[in-house]
Design a protein around this nucleic acid. Structure first.
Lengths: 269, 269
DNA sequence: CAGTGGTCTAGACCACCAA
DNA sequence: TGGTGGTCTAGACCACTGC
C-alpha cells in the first residue's frame, strides 16, 4: 500500500500529461504513510524480472529507453533504478553495449565472496578436492538458518582447497534439498570454475550477497588431519549465509582457513 | 591534464551559453586521452575543501544551489558529485536540513570500523583501559606502512577493551608523531567516546576508510596475561591501516580479539 | 552508422525541517 | 513560510561499441 496507487505503473491509464514535472507528485499530495518514489517501484519491477528468470545471468537486459517505454516513465527514472541495481552488483553496466545480469562466471567478478588472500603477491593457483557430497536431514539449527523445517532434506558438501599444493581451506556446505535436487559429487568434481557459477548454470540459483561471522578457533582432530596441521592450530572459522534475490537464504557454509601465509582481507568504509 | 582544460571551473570565463545541453562536451570534441566528467571535478574540488578544513566534521556544507552557483554548473551536476561523497561516507545528507561533513562523533555512525559483535543480542557495555602511551622511533616496517622515514617519531598506544567486565580486545596503535603532537595517556584516558572522534576534535584528523588483514593466532604470554586467558588461546589478529582524506595513512593498529562470545561480522555484496 | 550507456542542463514540484 | 534535499521529466549531446 502506498501513495502511488494510481501512477502509470500500477494503473493502466493510457497516458499522463507529460512534462508536468513531478508526475507522481500530483497523485500523492494528500498525506499518506508510506511514500515510495517511482524509481524504487521500477527497481522492484526489474528485480522481479530478474528473480523470475526473464533475463538470466550474463544476458543483456532491455535498454534504458525500452524499459522507460515499457513502464511509461522517463529514461532518467529507469536510469536511477538501474543505478541502484548496479550498486548492489545485481547488474553490470557496459557503455556502448548494454546492461547485463551479473554472474559469478565473469572472470573479473569470480570468487567475489572469497576474502582469503596470500600474504605475498603470488598467484592464487587453486586446486579443489571434493571430500564428500551426500543428502541428509537438516538439524534444527541448519533448518533455522536456511529457513527450512527440521528434518527437511539438505545437501551436504565437504571440500578442501589447496593453494600451491598446501591444503588451506576446509569447507562444509549445506544447501536446501529442493532447489539443488540432483547435485552429485561427480558433477561437483568434474566442474571447473567457481562453485557459485556452477549453481547458476546448473540450478538457476544466483547468490547475491552473504553475511559472514568470523571467529578464531583451534583445529579439531578431523580438521587438523584434512588440513595437515597439528591439532589445536589456530584457524579462522568463517560462517557464511549466502542469499539469492529477495534475501532468501540459499546456502550455509562453514570454512576453516589456515592463515599461516594467507589473511582475510576486509575493506572498511 | 584533461580534456576540460577550459571548462567553467578551470577557466574564468564569466558565462557559458546556458541551456546548451552537454556544456562541457563542446569543449572536448577532439579526441583526448583522459576524460574526466564535470561532476568528478566538482567532487575533487569539494574534497579539497574538506581536506583544507573549510568545513569541519559536523558542519553543514553550502547548499547544492550555492555550490552550483560557485562552480558555475547546474544543481544536478553538484548533486551527482555530492551523491558520490555521500556513498563514500565523507558527507551525510539530511533532507530539509542540509549536507553535513561526516564525523565519528555521530551516535549512529559511532564505532563504524569496529566489526566485533556479541554472539547474543546483549548490549555493548564497553569499558576502556589505556595501558600505556609513549613516544618512540618508528621501526622500518611501521615507517613503511605509515609512509614515514625509519626512526621518525611515532606515538604508541596500548589499550584493553572490556565488554561486561571481560577483557576482550587488546589493541596496539601507532600514530605518526607530527600530526599527533601532544597526545598523552591522560588525555586519552579522560576522554569518553570513540577514539576517532577524539582524533577529530583534538587533532583535526578524520579517519575516512581502513583496510584490515585478519589472521588466527595463538595468544602470546603477554596477550594472555592482559586478556586473562591461557597462552596459546586462539585469537583474531586484526591488522588495520586507517586513512584520512586522499588515502594518506594515518594510523596503524593491531587488535587481538577474543572470540569466545563475540564474532567479527562482515557483509559481502 | 546506429544503438547503448554516460553527462549536463533547466525547470517543476514534493517531502521534510526550522523558525 | 522559506530553505534544503529528493524526485521526475524532457531534451541535447558525448563516449563507446559493433555492424
Amino acid at each position: 500500500m502506498n501513495t502511488n496507487a494510481d501512477n502509470p505503473i500500477v494503473s493502466d491509464l493510457p497516458d499522463l500529461p507529460s512534462g508536468n514535472g513531478a508526475g507522481q507528485a500530483l497523485l500523492t499530495a494528500n498525506a499518506t504513510p508510506a511514500f515510495s518514489p517511482l524509481y524504487q517501484q521500477i527497481k522492484t519491477l526489474i528485480l522481479k524480472s530478474l528473480q523470475g528468470g526473464e533475463w538470466k545471468p550474463g544476458d543483456v537486459i532491455p535498454s534504458e529507453q525500452d524499459l522507460a517505454n515499457r513502464f511509461k516513465v522517463s529514461q532518467g527514472t529507469v536510469r536511477k533504478a538501474i543505478d541502484e541495481l548496479a550498486a548492489d552488483h545485481l547488474v553490470v553496466r557496459r557503455q556502448g553495449k548494454g546492461t547485463f545480469v551479473a554472474t559469478h562466471a565473469e572472470r573479473h567478478i569470480q570468487y567475489r565472496f572469497l576474502r582469503l588472500q596470500p600474504d605475498a603477491e603470488q598467484e592464487m593457483s587453486a586446486e579443489r578436492h571434493i571430500v564428500e557430497c551426500r543428502r541428509l536431514r537438516a538439524s534444527a539449527e541448519i533448518a533455522r538458518l536456511l529457513g527450512l523445517r527440521s528434518a527437511d532434506s539438505v545437501v551436504f558438501v565437504r571440500r578442501v582447497l589447496f593453494f600451491h599444493g598446501t591444503p588451506t581451506i576446509l569447507e562444509d556446505v549445506w544447501l536446501p534439498g529442493t532447489p539443488f535436487k540432483g547435485l552429485t559429487l561427480e558433477a561437483l568434481s568434474s566442474d571447473k570454475g567457481p562453485m557459485y557459477a556452477f549453481f547458476e548454470s546448473e540450478f538457476g540459483v544466483r547468490m547475491v550477497r552473504a553475511d559472514e561471522k568470523i571467529k578464531a578457533v583451534g583445529a579439531s582432530a578431523e580438521a587438523a588431519s584434512l588440513l595437515e596441521i597439528e591439532q589445536g592450530h589456530p584457524l579462522l572459522n568463517v560462517e557464511r549465509i549466502a542469499y539469492t534475490y529477495n534475501d532468501v537464504p540459499m546456502e550455509l557454509r562453514r570454512g576453516l582457513y589456515r592463515t599461516d601465509s594467507h589473511h582475510y582481507k576486509n575493506e572498511l568504509s
